[in-house]
Nucleic acid binder design. Structure first.
Lengths: 152, 152
DNA sequence: CTTGAAAAGAACTGCCT
DNA sequence: AGGCAGTTCTTTTCAAG
């Protein structure tokens, strides 16, 4: 865990909005020289706070208009069940996120499909046939908004 | 909606793993010249498929060790209820993602907190006081894995 | 689609305050 | 910590085949 000052937070905030900003642009924005801004970004990367940069793909533009969140409860629990489930779920390309959780469910999956008919196919042929699956609950996503989150 | 060939998919796949790759590196990897790879990336951006690049922040390294998913059902429904809820939830910095969903819940929230005690504070003072909140269900995240997802 | 070239900018280094 | 100067690499945009 690293100590962040206001400038670090400002840099993270700016990068959270646009990860393509370089050290020069950041420096100009916050009154630092290019090397100074660069050193701060590098320090944040090395501290592990800035863990990387990920693509934002528009599923809609790719033809995947349906996003569904699934809560899954395993029928049988135990180390083997979790490992079997996790291995099998990785083979389903429509599953974008696998979250191991504690609570009423054991796993939460974010699944994309071309349309509802396509989602039904994925659900019946891929999800419901996963090893150890017990109860399944679905929430269809209407819209999503991301926020920067607390920064230290 | 745009037509993607195998090379486009390969580029998106490589960028999904590491969004910092430039046109030069992509070209070398897939047997294209640097300008050819650059034009493809630009085309994907202009088509809206490649919607941007986002930071990956390590909440753990920032001191936020607890991530909880909340399913929230509103007690009262209607246009005003949704607008009120969405406006109020935006003011909570610990809420990183707000998903409007269809199903047993109306909203799903991804919430980060420093620890369980901090989460209890957020839940009781911020979440449970949101306008119109009915039923709340929580799942504590143990681990998360992201996968590239289907690319066309 | 390619190559080549040129301009601009970004990344990185070393030294100094 | 920050700045300045300088080198090197990449990106971006040409022109031409």
């Amino acid at each position: 865990m690293i100590a962040l000052d206001d400038t670090d937070r400002a840099i993270l905030h700016a990068l959270a909005a646009d990860a393509t900003l370089g050290a020069g642009a950041l420096g100009r924005r916050f009154g630092l020289s290019q090397p100074a801004a660069w050193r701060r970004v590098k320090r944040l990367e090395e501290a592990g706070v800035l863990a990387g940069r990920r693509l934002v793909l528009d599923a809609q533009a790719l033809g995947f208009g349906v996003t569904v969140f699934l809560g899954i409860k395993l029928a049988i629990k135990g180390r083997i069940s979790f490992e079997d489930f996790e291995r099998a779920v990785q083979a389903i390309p429509e599953v974008q996120v696998v979250q191991h959780v504690l609570g009423r469910f054991d796993y939460r999956l974010k699944v994309v499909a071309r349309d509802i008919a396509d989602f039904e196919r994925v659900l019946r042929r891929r999800i419901m046939t996963l090893p150890g699956v017990g109860q399944i609950e679905a929430n269809v996503m209407l819209s999503e908004e991301r926020r920067p989150g607390p920064l230290g």
